[in-house]
Amino acid sequence: MQASTSVTAELPAAAPRADRRRRAAAGGTAGLKRAHYTNSRLPFLLLLPQLLVLLLFFFIPAVRALVQAFVITDPFGTTVHFVWFDNFRALLASPEYRSSVWVTLWFTLAQSVLTLSVAAVLAFATDRVIRGRGLYRSIVLLPYAIAPVIAGILWAFMFNAHVGPLTYVLKALGVAWDPTRNGFDAFLLVTFAAAWKHICYDYIFLVAALLAVPASLLEAAAVDGAGPGLRFFKIALPMIGPTVFFLLVMNFVYGFFETFAIIDAVTKGGPGGATMILVYKVYQDGFVHIDLGSSAAQSVLLMIFAVILTMLQFRYVERNVNYDV
């Protein structure tokens, strides 16, 4: 029985494969509308602006970064040597790069967890309250409008070693605080600034996801005697699981790539590399120290990481679509 079903299942599978190949030759139909046009020139014209911009400002630069990662150019750009993986080897051997990797991981992790947990608490509370919900939402959303660099400046001022009002409070409480000298203080400061700027993003998605949890399920659980906390952890949380996963990925993307401005405004990677995240190091080595090969090699490693994150994101998209259907 088992064998016969597998055979019958295989037979029709062969036909679509050939069919698929034929269709791929005709342009492929994945993600194509059933009712579509078959025009040979118009689609190219429509795609032209996008492809042109991508070619000039995406593909050529990306390929050049790849090439530069494998060569050494002297500072005047006159001689170019192809050196295989030497740039990467030098990079991985350098203690600064390794410490930068750790700083980035810790920073991203701390920022993600902080952002997500604060946003979850606020979203849970927003889901419960009725009066003032719109007002609360407007206020929590406000940092979305604020540029990361401005967020950095605001926090840098509050905790400025000389004039910061909160530094004054900390000193009054007997805490020695100086983000310009103490690496850990600086790390905390950029983490808080980055989380402050990003809570609104996670919050929006969590509120929307909580709203989409069917009320009938929650009511049934309530009738069975489950309190609000139990309902949140046993019903709402598992149902918004995919959203939480998506947000974790997005928080990593944010922490890795979009916090450049915060670092630049608050610490410039210092003190002593305590807040030197990878993206900031690419910029420093490329534009300040003009070490092109190393900077390009770092770019390539970051690209690999970005590709992994994007694929995770796509997995979420796929899963979400499956749920909807």
């Binding site: 342009g27 795609l47 991508l54 995406f58 990306a62 050049r64 690419v282 690209m303 970005a306 590709v307």
Partner: peptide, 22 residues
């Protein structure tokens, strides 16, 4: 068509920050 599709969506993967110098 599929080539165009992949060319366009490959660009989703790399944020500006990582290819800043080139």
């Amino acid at each position: 068509r599929m080539t165009a599709f992949w060319l366009v969506f490959a660009s989703l993967m790399l944020p500006v920050e990582v290819r800043i110098l080139p």
